[in-house]
Design a protein around this nucleic acid. Structure first.
Length: 630
RNA sequence: GGGGGUGUAGCUCAAUUGGUUAGAGCGUCGGCCUGUCACGCCGAAGGUUGCGGGUUCGAGUCCCGUCACCCUCGCCA
């Protein structure tokens, strides 16, 4: 085999006259009898190999046995094509190689899926034959963009003095959060490792070790049910720094994002791609900041899609409390939530059946119903309008700023969560219908001032809304609450605080030092300033009901580390897969991962998970229990 | 775990709503063609209709179960 001199896709007019040797896969073969053409493909692109009877009949005859996807190497002279034979369908379209010799390096069976840019087939087949799928140009470009993204991030972080540190994959089960993947230990029969959901604690330990600035391209594992934008294993750019303010971390990450956009935009390899990142709007730090409270008020979600920023929700609870429609009034009286979405100009946007379907969707999310009202010159029409007197109608129309020709969607429920879920989804649907969610627009914002705690009524428990290591904004007040709770009495911290005179509203009004970066309604990154003092950390553990004993058992190594001179620290973690999806305008995470798993978490190519030998289970001390009959 | 969708030739899809021998395009294989570039022309092969059961004189079509893939709700601190 001769040494390759050039890559197929790199050859241009400037190479005319040179004798070159190229290697690659047979993309197509066009046999015209006395002349034949083979399109040879490699990672850089394609080039045409030409064979002619008048030049070398034996060589032409030998092309007979060449088939699609054979691997061949060819040597010949690069020559410029005649003007009428040039093509713009490929970058090397001005030239061709007049082949003088070629060799079949390997044959290939006909692949199950075609190697073509616009392949349209079931994802099952693509996953099963991933090594063929990855031969396609869009997939190779995706992998190049992914590598470029990481390259830009590393370059930025390296330049800012961050040290890339690897942390263990064999970690420890964490009782909170997502389900863990567990790994049985042979040496310690009956005991298990767990795969990390994130390197959270290790990066904090790196700060305590004095590394000052850490980052890692970390693989994370969560054994939850999959979604279009979720995989059981995914990649995060994980960052932590010492002595930062909240702004320091946010500004640093803005730099990372800015450089990723810039790096991919300026990479010549991608100029033939139609990705949003290449044609989309500018991203220029500093990014807008929005409080959690405002996001929930205007958009009912903590990751609002601001491409449709003017499509805001209105809180009608106050209006509902005094209205004549009992369903709304009742909800308002029970401290529920009533929210309205003004759909501009959509008074005739939906058929009766479509409106029914919207309501069905809302009910699917737990709503009792979804009211729709048409705004006309005469007032409100349709559905529940007859239950609402004219004066109240006018107040409502003024309240939501509606104009004749608008459609109003209203959801009311005792549980705020349900109203938020419904109205967020309706807002997305309406924005989509109004064509506001163009994916070449990038609407970026930080969400800040998140609640420190969430409250679960069922068992009267508080949860850290980010994670329990996040620094509260008002550490002193948290201390006071923890002191009250520590006095004991009732079984739950919340009950103890209530008895101690703390109002539940006040607990829920506490804010933390978390920040999430949201682009087009997708959470791209999230992080926080952490607690670096044991006493602060103990206060938060106290309020979320993790006693000293439990804290020692679960996070003893952290508590101990904090006691050894932990510096103030904070950081951020960003989902590489989701960011890449956004940049490339894709809506399935499988399309940005080289070897992804299916929606049920199977790898269809290597066929895993699979059974293991019973003897191995014995050695591990693991017993298989058959799935119970239904 | 709940709901929805899909499953017919190697691939993408049809099959007049239960009726003769399940078709087409692409691909594959063979032949022809000296400038193709989604080459063209002629011809051929290729099917356990995901799998199992049922209803029926008769099932790709209807029913039950099951498997796989996709979407969605729950879940994902």
């Amino acid at each position: 085999m001769k040494t390759r001199t050039h890559r197929c896709g790199d050859l241009r007019v400037e190479h005319v006259g040179q004798t070159v040797t190229v290697c690659g896969w047979v993309d197509t073969k066009r046999d015209r009898g006395g002349v034949a053409f083979i399109l040879l493909r490699d990672v850089a692109g394609k080039v045409q190999l030409t064979f002619a009877e008048e030049i070398n009949p034996e060589l032409l005859a030998a092309t007979k046995e060449v088939r699609h996807e054979f691997v061949i190497t060819a040597t010949g002279k690069v020559r410029e094509r005649d003007a009428e034979n040039k093509t713009t369908t490929m970058a090397s379209g001005d030239i061709e190689i007049a082949v003088e010799s070629f060799e079949i390096l390997n044959t290939a069976v006909t692949p199950a899926i075609e190697v073509r840019d616009d392949l349209k087939c079931d994802s099952e087949l693509r996953l099963k034959h991933r090594f063929i799928d990855l031969r396609r140009r869009p997939m190779q470009a995706m992998l190049q963009a992914r590598a470029k993204l990481l390259e830009c991030a590393r370059e930025t972080l390296g330049g800012e003095g961050f040290l890339e540190v690897e942390t263990p994959v064999l970690y420890k089960r964490t009782p909170e959060g997502a389900r863990d993947f567990i790994v049985p230990s042979r040496a310690h029969r009956g005991q298990f490792y767990a795969l990390p959901q994130s390197p959270q604690l290790f990066k904090q330990l790196c700060m305590i070790s004095g590394l000052d600035r850490y980052y890692q391209v970390a693989r994370c594992f969560r054994d939850e049910d999959k979604r279009a934008d979720r995989q059981p294993e995914f990649t995060q750019i994980d960052i932590e720094m010492s002595f930062p303010t909240r702004d320091d971390v946010m500004e640093l990450f803005e730099k990372v994002v800015g450089n990723v956009f810039k790096g991919i935009r300026e990479d010549a390899r991608f100029k033939d791609q139609s990705w949003p990142v290449l044609s989309g709007s500018e991203v220029s730090p500093p990014f807008e900041r929005m409080s959690y409270e405002q996001a929930m008020r205007d958009y009912s979600i903590d990751r609002p899609d601001l491409r449709s920023r003017d499509l805001k929700l209105t809180d009608l609870t106050g209006w509902a409390a005094g209205c004549s429609f009992n369903a709304f009034k009742g909800v308002a009286e029970k401290q529920g939530l009533v929210k309205a979405l003004r759909c501009p100009g959509l008074v005739d946007g939906f058929s009766t059946g479509q409106l029914k379907n919207l309501e069905r969707d809302a009910k699917g999310m737990g709503a009792t119903g979804l009211a729709n009202l048409k705004v006309t010159d005469a007032g409100l029409e349709g559905g529940i309008a007859k239950f609402i007197p004219e004066v109240e109608q006018k107040a409502m129309i003024d309240g939501v700023g509606a104009k004749p020709g608008d459609l109003l969607l209203i959801c009311a429920h005792e549980k705020h969560k349900i109203v938020h879920a419904v109205m967020h989804n309706m807002r997305l649907l309406i924005a989509e219908k109004l064509g506001l969610h163009d994916n070449s627009k990038f609407a970026i914002c930080w969400i800040i001032d998140f609640p420190l705690f969430e409250y679960r009524e069922e068992d009267e428990k508080l949860f850290a809304s980010h994670h329990p290591f996040t620094l509260p904004q008002d550490v002193a007040r948290v201390r006071e609450m923890a002191e009250i709770s520590r006095k004991g009495g009732e079984p739950h911290p919340v009950a103890r605080m209530l008895r101690g005179g703390v109002k539940i509203e006040e607990i829920l009004a506490l804010r933390n030092n978390q920040y999430d970066l949201v682009i087009n309604g997708i959470e791209i990154a999230g992080g926080s300033i952490r607690m670096h003092r044991t006493d602060d950390q103990a206060d938060v553990f106290e309020l979320v009901g993790i006693g000293k004993e439990e804290a020692d058992k679960k996070f003893g190594f952290l508590m101990s580390a904090l006691d050894h001179g932990a510096p103030p620290h904070g950081g951020i973690a960003s989902g590489v897969d989701r960011l890449l999806m956004l940049l490339l305008g894709l809506d399935n995470i499988q399309d940005v991962i080289a070897f992804p798993k299916s929606a049920t978490g199977r790898d269809l190519m290597i066929d895993t998970p699979n059974d293991v030998e019973p003897a191995l289970l014995d050695e591990l001390g693991v017993k298989m229990i058959p799935k119970p009959e239904k």
